[in-house]
Structure formats: structure tokens, C-alpha cells
Amino acid sequence: MWTQTYFGSLPEAPSRSQLTNPDLWGCLAQYASLSGDRSPVDDFWDRLDTITPQTVRPAAIPLLGVPILNRPDLLLRLLDSLDEPVEILAIVDNSINAGLEDGEALRNLLTRLEREPPAPIGRVQVARPFSNLGVAASWNAILSAFPDAPYALLVNNDVVFAPGVLGALIQQIDPARPQFLPLLPAPQEFSAFAITPGVWNRVGLFDANFHPAYCEDLDYAERLRRSDAIEWIAPETLQRLQQQANPDASATIGSDPRLAACNRTTYLLNCLWLQSSRRLRNPHPGAWMRCWLSRWVLEPAAPATLGP
């Protein structure tokens, strides 16, 4: 009855404040704890999965996410290819403790980008983990850190954008729908792709057990295709333009024989995980909604007042 009243009172596209109801959440949690009956709690989460919150179609790319390990020159090439405004450029710097020759040059570049974002980027934020998170965990870090973004465009640092592709993407993607839009055809679909919150809310985040790279895309594609609600958009014209602009792939590993040698081992381990039924047991749908609702948004502190 509580959840029925709660969800029945919501507008068609509620805001976060309209969805926030600590009294109800506390009552449901306490009831399940005292009674052992989790059915009202499960009903709450199931109903929450059907909610589509308020969304606004942005005029710019709201979030451009780039995991990076080496090759600062390729990152600069990527940024030079931007022909549409980007609100936030989020970079995960996986170079720390990697022993790469260009590691210091990369870190200096990232510091400079944070201080002076290049046009047409509004803000640059860099995450600096203790070690190489890997591709899947880096994507997760970007998505989880910016749940307010109407959608994210996640890109390998060795990709460039063909002229006009970003403008067409802005027109095609609908943040209110669960859409996945790869800008390159198979097998490079996850080299540059747009993903809306409705997608990772339904299928969960990427599987960080695929580390540091490869097969995480095959796993996620499989999970996407298992959900009838996901709209997999394959814009042939945009993909053709991107393919012409990006004839090569895997420049990160290809540029360093030591990385290629490491990858020969970890790639096979990832293949083994891909064939395991264990990876399918707990995808945790609802990840975006929980992240979005639990975000701490602090109001500006009231200015100090002088005494009489």
C-alpha cells in the first residue's frame, strides 16, 4: 500500500526531489529488517525500474569520457577533432605506476587540460586511481561520477571524430529513452559509443572482472541484446564516416611491445571469464537510479553574517 500510494502520486517524469522520500524508504527498510519479509522492498525496486525521470535534450555533448593509459599525442588528436561543444570531459588516468615512458608527459598534459580546458570544452576533470583500473572499471567510474548527465559519450583515446558526426549524434540521441548508439561498426562498436542512463539502469554497469581490457564489450553487447527495452541504434552514415576517419585500432597496446606481451596473458584470462556462467549471476540492474538518487547535492552555504 505504501509503495502503491508513493508511485501513484508521482508525475509522469518526476524530478529527483519528487522521487526522494526518506520516510517511506526508512519504513520499508525497517519493516523488512523486523519482519524478514522483503517483498515490499523488492516491489519498491521493481517499480522504480519503470520510472523515467525528467530529462532535457542538451545542445552540447554533456559528458565525454576517455580512459587513457599512454600516448598523450593521441589524446590531443582526439581533442582537436571536436567540432561541437562538450560540457564535461572526464578522463581516467590509468598511467600511474605503469612504467610507461610517456607517463610523465601524459600527466603533465592532463594537469594543463584541467587548468585550461581547450575550446570547445567547458570543464575537464581527471580521475587518478592508484593503478590501472582497466577499461570497464574506468567506464564505470565515469558513468557513476556523473549520473546527472543526460547521456555519456565514451571514447578510446586513439579515436578521432569525423566532421559533422558529433552534431548528428546530438540530434539523434534521446536521453529520455534507453539508447545505445555506437559510432563505429562491429567489431569496433565500443571504441566510441553514446549511452543513456536508461541503458545502464536496466542492464547494470560494465563487468570490471574483464581487466584491464578486451571482452568487456562482448559481455555488455550480450547483456544489451538480452533486454527488449534497449534501443540499439546503428547509424550507418555516421559509422561509415567514423570508420573512414579511424582506419586503425588498438593504438594504445600496439605502440608498446611490453603492453602487447602483457595483453597476451590477460586477454586469454578474459576469454575464460567470458565463457563462464558465473559472470551472468548478478548484473545488478537499477545501478543508475540508485546512483542518481543517492547523489549528495549540497546547497551553497549561507554567507556568514556580521553581528550587530
Rank of each mutant, 00 (worst) to 15 (best):
N97W: 05
G204S: 08
L69Q: 01
A213K: 14
Y6E: 02
P182Y: 15
T50N: 08
A32I: 14
L218A: 15
N97Y: 14
G8L: 08
T111C: 07
W200E: 03
A302I: 09
E84Y: 11
E87K: 11
R202S: 11
P300D: 10
L143E: 14
P58M: 12
L113E: 00
V135P: 01
D83L: 01
V155H: 05
L106Y: 12
L154D: 10
L306S: 03
E84M: 07
E101Q: 14
D158S: 09
D43S: 07
Q239S: 04
L74P: 06
F190P: 11
P14A: 05
R202D: 02
S9N: 13
I51K: 00
P58G: 09
A145C: 04
L106D: 09
N108T: 06
N209W: 13
G134F: 10
D217N: 13
R223H: 02
Y267H: 04
L113S: 00
R281W: 03
A127M: 05
A32M: 14
A162T: 02
P150Y: 15
C271R: 15
W200L: 08
T55V: 03
I91Y: 07
L76F: 00
W232R: 15
L24D: 12
A194P: 02
V92D: 08
F146V: 09
I253N: 14
F180Y: 15
T20E: 08
L106F: 12
A301L: 12
L272K: 12
L238R: 10
G26I: 10
R295H: 11
A59S: 07
P11S: 03
S191T: 10
L298S: 09
C291A: 11
L110W: 06
L110Q: 04
G164V: 01
A249Q: 09
A245G: 00
R240G: 04
N108Q: 13
P58C: 05
V199Q: 03
G286C: 07
L75V: 00
Q18L: 12
H211D: 06
L183S: 02
A302L: 07
A229T: 11
W273Y: 15
Q179H: 13
G99A: 11
Y6A: 05
F210W: 13
L19W: 04
D102Q: 15
W232G: 05
A162Q: 09
R123L: 01
E104A: 15
P58V: 04
C291M: 03
P308L: 14
L181R: 08
F180E: 04
G198L: 14
C262W: 11
V155C: 04
W232P: 00
D207W: 11
I91N: 01
W2V: 03
E236H: 12
N157T: 13
R258H: 09
A249H: 10
E84V: 09
L109G: 07
S227M: 10
W273T: 14
L169V: 04
F130N: 12
Q172D: 08
A261L: 06
